[in-house]
Design a protein around this nucleic acid. Structure first.
Lengths: 220, 220
DNA sequence: AGATTTCAATCAAACGATTGATTAAGTTTA
DNA sequence: TAAACTTAATCAATCGTTTGATTGAAATCT
């Protein structure tokens, strides 16, 4: 996951290794389904180092969420650059965002590790949920609503807009959450570039249809 | 959850109580996060009765999925009644299905218990997943695709149709999975009738927009 | 500079608590 | 009474955490 060799101290390296291992294992087998020993084993260190570096299993859980929030913030950028001036530009930006999002959660290595962890926290309403909401989810949902207003004319902070944006996020996320159902139903063995492109095309078609309908509704 | 008093034998009552308790607790705290003792306590019986009636914790997990599959099948009906003859009828039927689905997973007691359990099984790709897929998910997804073909003209078993139906399911499910995010972002304290009606309205608006776009695309 | 102390970091080992499962004795049902 | 069912007690295994010993590299002193 870390491309750079290691400019960090050895203790920082074990911290990193523990967090990386924990994010993966918590995502694969749930928090309670993952033992501290298995985390230490995967991180190539000793069990005691979890208590030493973080204070315990629960604190490591929080540290995982913090690491993800930081990383996602770095990748996607905290805020949007100069807001688009035309509805067409806004729509194009929305499309690009959806496309990147689909690609990130279905194909990229990092997304494949992050998303299951976050989905678990979400479904369990775990202790890291507030952190994820405030640092990762809310700012991006809000930005998306802003683009939606420019693209459709529907007020950014109206109930209808917020719900529409939830729908967009939801339909994309479901392809990751229900991955195994999708694969069975589509008779796919795995998600490769062409399949993901197919999904991206579908979700973007939905986005366009929703934008068109919202524009019409707002012009009435 | 059981409305009828008890026409069943006392052993059948304990079976039921154990399954009900397990579905709720597995859904709330995950399979590994739930102890057999807590299940027995909630069911008002002894730990050993789990091994006695089901053979063990894992077998109880399967029994939960079977009970849900049976119950969902009974509520939603296994197949559709006489297929609609016009696109308008099909669209109306799709809308009604979506509305019922939203209502079921966001308001009804049973749905509130079932969905978290199934989501966990889905995300963990647990042993009950095949059962859920074959008895609950696949038939209904297929029926939905059939309605989609009548409503839009797009072939039921095309990739585009199947993906569109996944999108529809996903956007609805997300309001349940991401319930806590939705509540925070909408500044709602709980889901009541009017809020759920708002969500239903939004998702149905999306459905209509998608149908309209699909019809247009297919006419080209 | 060389010897000594300090300290963060890691480790194997062991802690008490809890896990899922089993047993054998008890109770209820038919 | 015989079968079906429930119970408290107990089992080995595993859980998260703590312990005390050991390391090696800075910091301090002579």
């Amino acid at each position: 996951m870390t491309a750079s060799p290691d400019h960090s101290s050895p203790s920082e390296q074990t911290r990193r290794a523990l967090i990386d291992a924990a994010i993966t294992l918590f995502g694969e087998a749930s928090y309670h389904g993952t033992s501290t020993r298995s985390i230490a084993l995967r991180a190539g260190t000793n069990v005691a180092s979890i208590s030493y570096h973080f204070g315990g299993k629960e604190a490591l859980r929080i540290a995982c969420a913090e690491a993800i929030a930081e990383r996602v913030g770095k990748v996607l950028g905290s805020g949007e650059v100069a807001p688009p001036s035309s509805p067409e530009q806004a729509a194009a930006l929305l499309e690009k965002t959806i496309r990147n999002f689909v690609h990130f959660i279905l194909l990229e290595q990092e997304g494949a590790n992050f998303v299951p962890f976050m989905m678990r926290e979400l479904i369990e309403e775990g202790p890291a949920l507030d952190l994820i909401y405030q640092t990762t989810f809310e700012p991006r949902h809000r930005a998306f609503c802003g683009l939606w207003e420019i693209a459709t004319g529907s007020p950014a902070e109206s109930d209808a807009t917020r719900i529409a944006v939830f729908s967009l996020i939801g339909q994309v996320l479901y392809f990751r959450i229900g991955q195994s159902l999708v694969k069975k139903r589509m008779e796919w063995e795995r998600f490769d570039d062409s399949r993901v492109a197919l999904i991206a095309r579908g979700t973007i078609a939905n986005l366009r249809a929703m934008i068109a309908a919202a524009r019409e509704a707002h012009h009435d």
